[in-house]
Amino acid sequence: MIALRFHRSLYPAPAVHAAVAAYGELARIEVEERDEDIAVTLSDIDPDFADQADEFADSFANHVLFEATRSERGEA
């Protein structure tokens, strides 16, 4: 299980949700929206990626960054 924390002032909630939608088939993803941040827990990672769980979590974070960048540019 890997826990990530996305600060709300840096990562808009829709960006986190978009990444959850993109990665949802590959892991169990729990999202808890808190005051300051959005906590994401990744577990039951697809066996194809299970031995690279850190990379999987990092790729997820890159995807959130991508979505955040996209929304910052007036898209999404």
Binding site: R5, L10, D58, S59, A61, N62, L65, F66
Partner: peptide
């Protein structure tokens, strides 16, 4: 964002 994004091919990036 703009600068960090250009590195996603080589790096994993996290903001805090």
């Amino acid at each position: 964002y703009g600068a960090a994004y250009l590195f996603v091919d080589r790096c994993y990036i996290f903001l805090d």
